[in-house]
Design a binder for these strands. Structure first.
Lengths: 232, 232
DNA sequence: AATATGCTTTGACTTAGGTCAAGGGGAGAT
DNA sequence: ATCTCCCCTTGACCTAAGTCAAAGCATATT
């Protein structure tokens, strides 16, 4: 029991949102944190649910997404370890604007809203860290809006492949970090269209594709697609 | 000169971001604020510019938007009096992610970044207000992503008309608050498409349209369109 | 009154991407 | 070995919306 709390405290110190806080706040955060696990495919919260606290992902993968009446999904973001989510309701006291679901088995720390806000009032570092995270998230959303409105699907896929490559020191050998049907949802399309575009990219010598492995063959060509300077 | 500063101080107290602050902080904010005016059509900042502070709109209208290489615009948001903007760069120290331009003659207060951050450190109310604003903006973006990805243009227009009506106590008599080419950009389409859809809505008895005046004739029909339960 | 400019509307045409159906492949369960 | 389930791919077809052109309308300027 005591060791369990010590584990959570150590996990908390590793979370970017909590960088630079005074030591006593780590104890306080560990004191209010609730430890929750979710299986892959399990819903964490639903659009419209009352937002009663902040979630931070300790391990696993979580997608936040919207659904159309016909069941088409648009993924807003896929979160990895260390990232907070569900924040859109904590500070404005509004319901969750989207669904959240674990893509793989995931562990999450949950911080009840009132207690978290009290901690923010005690030390501005937490607030400034949170402001930085929300600001970066706004720019990610701005990029997603730009993609959806001003780029065609091949351009979005090209941009995504280049982003994966950049995450791995510009390697040409990529492994998709999610199922293709999830990637289709993130890129604002459907699996059939994603599949066709990967095939056309392969036929045009831009990539080699084998399941989730993708090798970049023509980086300049992908860049031209991603910048909407050229079409597939 | 002294009265000029007093005017700015009074304007600052009327801004929602600054609600509930201790009196001395109004003096401090007035002390660091820079007063700037822009003509309609004037660029305030450009995508990629270094973000050196926070802007708050005192009067007028400002759009924040992205451009495609061919010059198509996607408006991310249209700001009215009292709203801060340019915040995506203040807390994460990154360049502006979009262009900002005055749609009409506008007055803006500019708060240099370092000074503003110092004020946030002094009192958590400012931080909590800012967190609430960024949270609401994230949900607005989530709604825009949903619109662009999961709704067709008629549904987006219907939702927008219903939103205008809701802003005016559910009146059926609307006046568009921007030029139609700007509205097309906000809804993620082009003026030709917007014009055709307004005509089809009129022909189907959903609205009466005369220039910028629009009268809702079939609210339920618009709601069904907005919810993607029906198509035009 | 004439001209210029920007916005708006309409027509004809093209295409990106969705829908629906069908089938293949891989992994897990029996 | 067989079955089930889920993911993925491909084909055929359809349509929403964009492109390009042309013309109308309102406002401002000369």
């Amino acid at each position: 029991m005591e060791r369990q709390s010590a584990v959570i405290r150590r996990e908390i110190t590793a979370i970017p949102l909590f960088n630079g806080l005074p030591q006593r706040q780590y104890d306080q955060l560990a004191g209010i944190a609730l430890d929750r696990s979710y299986a892959g495919g399990q819903r964490i919260f639903s659009e419209g649910d009352e937002g009663i606290g902040l979630y931070v992902l300790v391990s696993g993968t979580v997608k936040v997404y919207k659904l159309s009446p016909e069941g088409k999904e648009q993924t807003l973001h896929v979160f990895g370890a260390g990232e907070p989510f569900g924040e859109a309701s904590v500070f404005a006291g509004q319901p969750f604007p989207a669904h959240a679901e674990a893509l793989a088995e995931s562990r999450v720390l949950f911080f009840p809203r009132a207690a978290f806000v009290e901690l923010i009032k005690e030390d501005p570092s937490l607030a400034l860290n949170m402001l930085a995270i929300l600001s970066r998230r706004l720019r990610t959303f701005a990029a997603l809006v730009e993609d959806l409105s001003l780029k065609e699907v091949p351009g979005r896929l090209a941009a995504y492949l280049l982003y994966l490559s950049e995450q791995r020191d510009l390697t040409d050998d990529l492994i998709l970090d999610m199922a293709k049907n999830q990637l289709a949802s993130l890129l604002g399309t459907i699996p059939e269209t994603l599949s066709r575009i990967l095939s056309r990219m392969a036929r045009q010598g831009l990539i080699h594709a084998a399941g989730r492995r993708i090798k970049i063959m023509d980086r300049r060509g992908l860049e031209a697609l991603a910048q909407a300077e050229r079409r597939l």
